[in-house]
Amino acid sequence: MIVALWSGPRNLSTALMYFFAHRGDFQVSDEPFFGAFLKQYPVYRPSRELVLQNMELEPLKVLESLQAKAENGPLFLKNMANHISLVPKDAALEWKAVLLFRHPAAVIASYRKNMAEISLFDLAYREQWQWLQELQKAGKSYYLLDSDALAQNPELELRKLCEHLEIPFSKSMLQWPAGPIKEDGLWAQFWYQRVHQSTGFEAQQKLDLPAISGEDLELYQECLAYYELLKNAAHEQIQSPRPA
């Protein structure tokens, strides 16, 4: 079984990867197509040169490696949704899809700490919506997970996710040792400080949305339109088919 997370940046995607890594019954892979993505797109990332020098850059070779890995047991893939163009559609449609999304005000404020320039493509809302439509058109099962809901009530949201995937859940899975894991991507030094300090999912009582500055207002409005489509789809997902 391959569970494929399709997220945007700064969405608790790394914490979710840690949840699967520390379960004991899943292997995990951290953005396996990132090298191929950076080869294809001339976008800035703090880890760009490091990744291009050290990761596999050919998508089909990445796919072959993941398929071989999945023969050894269940595999969780943490992907950014804007990497989807690097993955053969027939393969990606066979993976159990989870789409993780967060309110764009919080995403933009967090992402801008490391990125001077931000685009709609960087934040991947559009690509999440497009992939959701592909899954629906193909009649495939999927799960939409609201990052803000996950932050406020991790036990409830992770129980529901595990139920959808038909995998076990226990409260002990919400905790893990502080520090990195061997599967961390090469970009961990730029982005993973908080998750390395964490010891698991802990409920956040209040989520305050930051104000959006004038320079980000147009981007925010673009992202918000897709966010609301994803949010509405999440309310309706109870009607989607269960995984085979």
Rank of each mutant, 00 (worst) to 15 (best):
L16C: 11
M17S: 04
F20A: 14
A21Q: 15
H22N: 14
H22Q: 13
R23M: 13
R23E: 10
D25V: 01
S29V: 10
D30H: 13
P32F: 04
P32G: 02
G35P: 00
A36Y: 02
A36E: 03
F37T: 04
L38N: 02
Q40A: 14
Q40W: 01
Y41R: 15
Y41A: 07
V43S: 09
Y44C: 12
Y44Q: 13
R45A: 11
R45I: 05
S47N: 10
R48C: 07
E49R: 06
L50I: 09
N54L: 10
N54C: 08
E58M: 05
P59D: 02
P59Y: 02
L60N: 12
L60V: 05
K61I: 03
V62C: 09
L63V: 04
E64A: 11
E64N: 04
S65E: 04
L66A: 08
A68D: 12
A70R: 11
A70H: 10
N72S: 11
L75K: 03
F76D: 01
N79Y: 02
N79M: 04
A81H: 11
N82T: 05
H83F: 06
S85H: 09
V87T: 05
P88K: 01
D90C: 06
D90G: 06
A91Q: 11
L93S: 09
L93D: 09
E94C: 15
E94I: 10
W95S: 02
A97D: 04
A97S: 14
L100V: 13
